[in-house]
């Protein structure tokens, strides 16, 4: 898609700008939809109805009304806050989660940046989110915010390791870090997907990745950084209006980013599950987005099923369960490939 755009516009810079904005076209409506969906899923899991009134059919316009309200709200900055960092942190958080989309292939025809170090880049740049969270917690000058930020830092530092190790198992099979190439290697029927290769090692790696990604996106049961019952709202306690909306957008963008990486590496990304049936770049977008959305829904499902972990339990899960088993997966895949 890069070359045709350049040819069409005869202006490289404009083409790149357009390429950069394409994921945003998906993320913003997705975030609005996902917030609504989250509320509906949570409501129905608790035998409630959730938003029902705005827009008519099952309150579909609720989040649109919410975002309109957030736009109009006063932007409150605490007087004791570090103004610059307080202003900057929502942007850092959002940039961190949005930058990850640059290397994620949405279809065989579209990937923001088809770089060889794609997966490495995604893992590296999504860690920027924690910097923004730390900035938010520190600059708010609020003990709850700081607690949330510190927890987030501890959590992401711990969970980056099982995440990266679990993805490494796939990278070993694929022999590349280029996400588009990893996708192309999984073309064909669904048993070509990496999740079914070298059974059960990659499957276990997928589970490890999924659990760890929950922690990285600060979702329940690992939502200690924003634990509303203990820390008010965690690192974004002191944020209001559009800045708060940006944090929210970043959280949901992050949810989709980790789901998309999981889908790309383990479930064939934009590949149709039925070989050539419904294949091609257009259907590719559909398959990619559906796989991503599926994991987003599973994340919501888990959120409304599980209670929050304690900090020591969080560390136990990371260091004593996920990390050793990720190593086992790598070893298993390695031995299998040597044989």
């Amino acid at each position: 898609m890069e070359q045709p755009l350049k040819d069409l516009l005869s202006n490289d810079v404009l083409a790149y700008v357009i390429m950069a904005f394409i994921p945003l076209l998906w993320i913003v409506p997705y975030a609005l939809f996902a917030v609504w969906l989250e509320r509906k899923v949570s409501a129905h899991m608790q035998d409630r109805l959730g938003p029902m009134r705005v827009g008519g059919w099952h309150g579909w316009a609720q989040t649109i009304a919410d975002i309109l309200k957030l736009v109009q709200k006063e932007d409150i900055v605490p007087s004791a806050a570090d103004k610059k960092l307080h202003f900057l942190s929502p942007w850092v958080v959002f940039i961190g989660s949005y930058a990850a989309f640059a290397a994620i292939p949405f279809s065989s025809a579209y990937v923001g940046s088809n770089i060889n170090l794609g997966l490495f880049y995604v893992i590296a740049v999504s860690t920027l989110v924690v910097v923004g969270i730390l900035m938010a917690g520190w600059s708010s000058n609020n003990k709850w915010s700081l607690f949330g930020a510190m927890r987030s830092a501890a959590q992401i530092v711990s969970y980056e390791i099982p995440t990266a190790l679990a993805l490494l198992a796939v990278v070993m099979i694929a022999g590349t870090l280029n996400l588009q190439e990893i996708n192309q290697q999984q073309t064909g029927w669904f048993w070509h997907w990496y999740i079914f290769k070298k059974f059960p090692f990659v499957f276990v790696a997928f589970i490890i990745y999924f659990v760890a990604s929950l922690a990285e996106t600060n979702r329940t049961p690992f939502d200690l950084p924003e634990a509303e019952s203990e820390l008010v709202a965690g690192y974004h306690t002191e944020y209001s209006g559009m800045k708060f909306a940006l944090f929210f957008l970043a959280e949901y963008a992050n949810m989709f980013a980790v789901s998309a990486i999981g889908a790309t590496l383990f479930l064939g990304g934009w590949n149709s599950p039925f070989g050539d049936f419904l294949g091609g770049p257009i259907w590719g977008v559909f398959w990619f987005l559906s796989k991503g959305m599926f994991f987003v829904v599973v994340q919501m499902w888990l959120r409304w099923t599980l209670p929050r972990l304690r900090v020591d339990q969080l560390m136990y899960v990371s260091w004593k369960v996920l990390t050793p088993w990720a190593f086992v997966c790598i070893l298993g895949v390695g031995f299998w490939m040597m044989m």
Binding site: H44, M45, D47, L49, L302, T305
Partner: peptide, 21 residues
């Protein structure tokens, strides 16, 4: 236990809501 919990919540997804509008 996570799987059992997920089954419980999944089944509740389809139980009629108790909310009266």
């Amino acid at each position: 236990s996570v799987l059992i919990g997920m089954k419980v919540t999944f089944l509740h997804l389809f139980t009629p809501a108790v909310t009266i509008q």
